[in-house]
Simulated scan of single mutants.
Amino acid sequence: MSTAVKCPTCGKKVLWKPENKFRPFCCERCRLIDLGAWAKEEHKIPGDNQFDDVMESDLNNS
């Protein structure tokens, strides 16, 4: 049995099954629209600025 979910980009119902290579998106177009939004920083994951600005050199010195 497959579960139906909404495409995060267009809202179309999508069956969540292994054969759907674009899941949770309905198609490659919607997947690429979402990827472009992440690349333009339109989507963000909240974080703590204290840890976001750590440089690799800071990590190696501890």
Rank of each mutant, 00 (worst) to 15 (best):
M1N: 01
D53R: 10
V14L: 08
C27T: 06
A4C: 00
C27H: 01
F25Q: 09
C27A: 05
Q50R: 15
E28Y: 02
V14K: 05
L32T: 00
K21E: 09
N60T: 14
T9N: 04
M55K: 05
P18D: 02
T3V: 08
K12I: 03
N49I: 13
K6E: 07
V5S: 10
N20K: 10
C7N: 11
K17A: 12
A37T: 09
D52P: 01
D34L: 05
R31E: 03
E19P: 09
L35R: 07
S57D: 12
G11E: 08
R29M: 02
S62A: 14
R31T: 00
R23M: 09
E19Q: 09
C26L: 04
L32H: 00
E28H: 10
D48Y: 01
E42F: 13
F22E: 04
I45R: 14
P8S: 04
F51T: 01
W38N: 13
G11D: 09
N61D: 10
M1Q: 07
D48T: 08
C30V: 00
N20M: 07
L15N: 12
S57L: 12
K6A: 11
L32N: 12
K21N: 07
P46M: 11
P8Q: 07
C26I: 05
D48I: 03
G36W: 01
R29N: 11
G11N: 10
I45K: 13
D58K: 10
H43R: 15
D52V: 12
F51M: 08
K17L: 06
W38I: 13
D53P: 03
F25E: 09
L32Y: 06
V5P: 04
Q50A: 08
K6N: 10
K40R: 13
C10R: 04
E56P: 10
Q50P: 00
I33S: 05
R31K: 08
A37F: 05
C10Q: 08
V14F: 04
G11V: 03
K17N: 08
E19C: 02
K6T: 02
G47Q: 14
C30Q: 04
F22C: 01
C26R: 03
A39H: 01
K21F: 06
H43F: 15
K44S: 14
S2F: 11
T3E: 05
K40G: 06
I45L: 15
N60L: 15
K44W: 12
A4I: 11
N60I: 15
S57I: 11
L59V: 04
V5A: 03
M1W: 07
L35N: 08
T3D: 08
W16R: 01
C10K: 04
K21C: 06
P18W: 03
K13C: 13
V14G: 03
P8L: 02
R23A: 06
S2T: 01
A4Y: 02
F25C: 00
L15T: 08
C27E: 04
I33T: 01
P8D: 05
N60W: 11
S2R: 03
K13E: 13
D58Q: 12
R29E: 03
A39F: 05
A37G: 07
C26H: 09
K17C: 02
V54G: 13
I45G: 09
L35Q: 09
